[in-house]
Design a protein around this nucleic acid. Structure first.
Lengths: 185, 185
DNA sequence: ACAAAACTTGAGGGCACCCTCGACTTAGCC
DNA sequence: GGCTAAGTCGAGGGTGCCCTCAAGTTTTGT
């Protein structure tokens, strides 16, 4: 997937890296809505150059987040390897939201209607697939309430996004209460 | 509290009412952030007139929401009259969020850092006081987990605000799961 | 019916963000 | 060293929202 279509000129390559670094940092700190001007400024590059490299905000997101989202796969794998289905499911939730809590941009991506970047979308689909397996396993083991669905988890994710934003110190407790409500009767 | 300081001229009084009606409707439909211009347009009044009557958005909120928030008191009273502390608490939550779900503006008020309008603030304090009583009673009856606090409820409210916004069809289910997690062990 | 007071109006200035484009600069090749 | 394609720059035009104020209109008291 390393499209080496045309090798960039040296200065262009340098600027591209500076832009990515600046955007990575700002997205993470302030979320996906940071003004484009701020990104350019932090990269010490003009706004025109930013738009040359990344014509839309989406392009920037698409360049940055696939790597971030790879962390989700690591979390999924860890959970899928866990022998205890309930434990796997609960730890999975904790890990996912811990990741979200560390990165305001990721939080935005998971919470709102996602960007269309194919790589981002597919990472989310992958995540959803893994979640579904974890849910099924936990239901089958008789520990998770039988009517739990991936839709419920999507709702939870949006709720958690909000909690993380407003009260970063509270999200673990909030989650733990919710999780208690998830046990099979 | 009906400050009849200076009787308004007839046309002014009419416009004031039109503005209140328009703002009530738009706040409820679209939330507290509707552009001032939209409110003026819907009231069929110029933007200057809007600002004459309500110099800030806060003033509009202060004029509209105390009445809305009175509904909260009704809900509290009903809950406080309930003999079963657990039932009272759960129904209270359902009623509060049902109210929020009906009014996008109210949802905004309860979710974000509130407007400074004294009447709004005091209504919220009143609500918090009632919540606290309901929480205490439910804890004492041994049905609600003993460590539950008003802070947890504030967090829940923000989370619910988000769920109501994104997935209006899901909030009851989300709440019911959370509430299951609230039962004393 | 008239004047003064109260009210209304909307053009327009400010701001923050978006994005474009023509003039300049520079890397990289001969 | 000089040429050219590639890249950079930033002023400036567009949008949407905020809010003000001087000029015009309406109400009301006499």
């Amino acid at each position: 997937m390393v499209t080496a279509s045309k090798p960039l000129r040296a200065d262009a390559a340098r600027n591209r890296e500076k832009l990515l670094a600046a955007a990575t940092q700002l997205f993470s700190e302030r979320g996906l809505d940071v003004p484009m001007e701020h990104i350019a400024r932090r990269a010490e590059v003009s706004i025109g150059t930013l738009y040359k490299h990344f014509p839309t905000r989406e392009d920037l997101v698409a360049a940055i987040f696939p790597e971030r989202l790879a962390a989700l796969d690591v979390i999924s794998e860890k959970a899928l390897a866990d022998q205890d289905p309930w434990h796997a499911f609960v730890v999975y939730l904790e890990d996912v939201y811990a990741l979200q809590a560390e990165d305001r941009g990721l939080n935005d991506i998971l919470a709102r209607d996602l960007p269309n970047a194919p790589e981002v979308v597919s990472a989310c689909h992958r995540g959803a697939g893994h979640s579904e397996i974890l849910i099924m396993r936990a239901i089958e083991s008789g520990t998770l309430r039988a009517d739990y669905t991936i839709t419920d988890m999507a709702t939870l994710t949006r709720a958690m996004a909000q909690v993380i934003r407003d009260s970063p110190g509270e999200w673990r407790r909030f989650l733990s209460i919710y999780v208690e409500g998830l046990r099979a009767p």
